[in-house]
Design a binder for these strands. Structure first.
Lengths: 121, 121, 121, 121
DNA sequence: GTGGTCTAGACCACG
DNA sequence: GTGGTCTAGACCACA
């Protein structure tokens, strides 16, 4: 199963599905122009309401990760055009977190060295 | 006014209040053992229901930012004991964001240099 | 009825509900990922206000005994992951009680033998 | 200062005072028939309302830890007669905690050996 | 239907 | 006066 749901996460199911497909598309697991599972098929395998899948797909379209062709299905957009925009969003989020660390008295250089220590493989 | 509310942010009012006091306590604007505004007083100045304030204060207690004495008031915990724990939470959040960047093909060193370029004053 | 209320105990109703569900989850009566009664349903069967149930469920979430999915319900966390943490809390409480006994002049070994006499089946 | 108050503990101030004197009396720091500080004196040193002291002293009398002589003051009862009763209460509390540990699957002998490991000096 | 937030107003114990 | 609990009822997003 490519998408997993957590009923206890607090995150709405449709957003969990959206996040799952975003990751699959951005990482290339789902290739450009590849067809996503049909609404009914995915609803069945995930054992949830088709409306929820429908809503997730609508969101993926709105965010530009997929495009639908009525009667034919919904298809993934190529990842290259999306990666840059997604990275921009993430850097923005990290900026907010760094600001919080600065607010409570940390130095920027110390933060960077902490990140190196903690997350560099 | 120490706390400001944004009715259009989507963030629940009680969480906006929690976040506001967290910042005030962590930054030392509210000193250790200083009394927070009373439930009714803050409800009045913010023009919202006392229950919403109550809920925010309860959340601050749960997260260890304040402690209450029924009949006396609610009092701030010292910021020093809280800063380290808070920083840990923030670093953890940044770690997740960095992981997303790595997942879409960025190199760790490039991420760090981006952070330096974007956020170093 | 899984949960019973005592209106004369002095313990707030929402905490009685929390304690009740904690015991049911820790003892495995409520299995992992099992759905708890809906807020409105439980409010109806216990004949109390839905807000009180809501508050109890929120507390269960805060303490890690359950997690919710808006629109779906609230679901129990597995007991195995909780038992160890819960035991730690209880041992800590017992430690405080033992300290009181030591303070009033009892010997540790005498305390242990008292416990054996009183509580060993 | 023999009695210390914590405005953030959630425990009512009058009970904190009661607990403080109980410990002082049980441990013998306050001797039999020793006079407790006057209401006004203690209220002044603790910087709290005299009514709160009054209430604490009433509670100490009710629980048999002190006796008042109108116009003369309030005096500690001898600790020997109290220790046994207090120990009984504490053993009862520990019994409840042990029951919780049994309920979540621990063996009695394991609990005892845990207590030995954790709390034996 | 579900959980989550907010308001309004009552009542309680504590100080 | 203070914080804490509970009820009643409304409205929202989610499934």
């Amino acid at each position: 199963m490519l998408i997993s749901l957590d009923y206890r996460s607090g995150l709405p199911l449709y957003l969990q599905i959206v996040e799952g497909f975003k990751r699959l598309i951005l990482s290339g697991v789902i290739a450009e122009n590849e067809r996503l599972p049909s609404v009914r098929e995915l609803a069945s395998t995930l054992a949830i309401n088709p409306n929820t899948i429908q809503r997730a797909y609508r969101e993926l379209e709105n965010e530009g990760f997929a495009g639908s062709s009525p009667g034919k299905g919904i298809f993934a957009v190529g990842s290259n055009s999306l990666k840059e925009r997604e990275a921009e969003i993430i850097y923005n989020d990290i900026g907010k977190e760094i600001q919080k660390l600065l607010d409570i008295g940390n130095e920027f250089d110390d933060i960077i060295s902490q990140l190196n220590t903690r997350f560099k493989k």
